[in-house]
Design a protein around this nucleic acid. Structure first.
Lengths: 342, 342
DNA sequence: ATGAAAGCGCTAACAT
DNA sequence: ATGTTAGCGCTTTCAT
């Protein structure tokens, strides 16, 4: 490996001068600068960022702990954050927790000691159980996508997930639905379900617990499976008690739900309306196009990155704050008026 | 920040002994080990990995350069690689190129100087144009998902993309299709199209260039748009010259293609068969379920990570190699026999 | 404007 | 089994 000392010797100067040239300081005369740059080229020198990091205490690296990137929601956030970091020459150290609390804590600890300049943590149910403490040592922490009980001790940028459920409920209510089945990744998405219930309650409608079906993992498969169980139940009920709409806590499960509805010989939305959450790219191109509550994930990524910059600039203790971004209903063809009762 | 020296003083030993304890060396007596561990706990000491990295020349970090994580293909690969790295305590430094050649080269250079222990690069068209050289300095390099002209100078694990196209062509041929339209993200996926053509040519069938439609970006939107153009063309031709099948170079575009077909009042697969490539999670739950050529991406990730371990163990110069993984047709409902001519 | 010296926190190679 | 001495490659004083 060619070091700064090699370049210095070659150019007939000291390490310090080379350092000044490399970092674009203006204190170097044009002549020496040229000599040094020539030496750098000839030797193929690149600065060792680890050594610089040890010296300056800054690594130009941000850690990001995220449940998974196989989920379109998080992959969009990662993509956006990475792009933003790159504009300032920062790098992204990515760790996934995969819904495993122990793993999550391990990742957090090991990223902290890796001297990242800041740490961004995306919400995970398992992590919500034990929110990372704003310890004195360790890099500044920013939280995002925090669905359950955002801690008031840290800066957090998240989406109003309760409102996402609420807006879905309001949309269904406005279409006249009064018997709504829920397919949700529980307990992770319990807040979305609570929002849905709040909206329906405003109309005196309640969702019995037996109409709530668990779809773990937020995949079309699990949505299909949960909806199949729901539809078997439904078929056994008298016509006037039958579900006219399904609220799915993610778009991914909603796609599976729609397939299950069709396989049961029912039509979307004539027999059953379906509404999802997130607005993944496939939602608009599903069959029929999926009504959904869009989550402003890229905006969330941008605001979280802003907090990251602030945290890095300020140094250690980051002031607590809570930014709650508003979701928005995208009415498409998978939802329609409730069929006349009976 | 509490350092090793602090712990040493507190425990009444030297840094070296603390170091031995921290790294689980067996040369420490039970008594001193206990004292040191107590001091570590009291002080809340965590080792500084940057300093260790400078000292050992190893950072326990692997860089991964990938076109994007917003695409399910790459996000699955990233997920798998990250999980594998984590089992050995390694971290993932992620960089995305987003189809931008200049950006790709920048990312490569900056990751190299960050002293990652190894560098994995996923294929990108822009990078294919100038394959990264196996330079003497810089970390060992492994390539994966290399679609165009894998360099013979480096270890590379990729998928036989030409064969993916070929298998799609053979599937359509066996169903009796002779007039096939292509929707592809060109030029990135030109190899897939070449494979398709080779299969059809075995049956004396050729695909005219006017039947090849560009769908940049591999999104349902671009697939929809490309297919709409294709279908307008098709409608102007006499019935006996009309396309009976569409080969889409990705599943994402294929979803858009199917939607466009329906919007033109045609049925999948009765009027037009559709086949995609990749087997993304949504493919099985599309309407109708999408026939596709599955790409063994997780297996690719595993084999690439194996090469990474080998490269890290061996040290600098990695022996060139080429592993080509076989794709596989998943026949589902979106493809069927060609409608009788006329 | 450039040089010399010290040190970031750790590990490695000896010495004891 | 533990202590001592040198660095790793860079940045930061402080001289000149």
């Amino acid at each position: 490996m060619v070091t700064m000392a090699d370049v210095a010797k070659r150019a007939g100067v000291t390490k310090q001068t080379v350092s000044n040239v490399v970092r674009g300081r203006t204190v170097v005369s044009a002549g020496t600068r040229a000599k040094v740059e020539a030496a750098i080229d000839e030797l193929g020198y690149t600065p060792n960022l680890v050594a610089r990091g040890l010296s300056t205490g800054t690594t130009m690296t941000v850690g990001f702990v995220v449940p998974t990137v196989a989920n379109p929601f998080y992959s969009a956030v990662v993509e956006e954050v990475e792009a933003l970091l790159e504009t300032r020459g920062y790098h992204l150290l990515l760790a996934t927790t995969r819904g495993d609390g122990a793993r999550a804590r391990r990742q957090l600890a090991s990223l902290s000691s890796r001297s990242v300049d800041a740490l961004l943590v995306a919400g995970d149910f398992d992590l919500s159980e034990c929110p990372p403490a704003p310890e004195g040592h360790g890099p500044p922490l920013v939280l995002c996508a925090w669905e359950i009980d955002p801690p008031r001790t840290l800066p957090v940028v998240t989406i109003d997930f309760e409102r996402a459920g609420y807006l879905a409920g309001r949309h269904l209510r406005e279409l006249g639905h009064r018997r709504v089945t829920v397919v949700a990744d529980l307990p992770a998405h319990r807040v979305r379900v609570a929002g849905l219930r709040r909206a329906l309650a405003e109309d005196g409608v309640s969702v019995p617990d037996e109409w709530v079906f668990a779809a773990p993992g937020a995949t079309p498969e699990s949505g299909y499976e949960a909806a199949s169980r729901a539809l078997r139940d439904r078929a056994e009920r008298p016509a006037r008690d039958r579900t006219t709409a399904v609220f799915s806590s993610t778009d991914a499960t909603a796609l599976g739900v729609m397939e299950a509805v069709r396989h049961h010989g029912l039509r979307v939305p004539e027999d059953i309306s379906v509404i999802g959450v997130d607005d993944i790219p496939q939602a608009a191109h599903a069959h029929p196009p999926l009504t959904t509550v869009a989550l402003p994930k890229r905006r969330m990524a941008r605001e979280a990155t802003e907090l990251l910059w602030r945290a890095i600039a300020e140094g250690r203790p980051t002031a607590p704050s809570l930014t709650l971004l508003d979701p928005e209903v995208l009415a498409r063809a998978s939802s329609g008026p409730a069929a006349a009762a009976g």
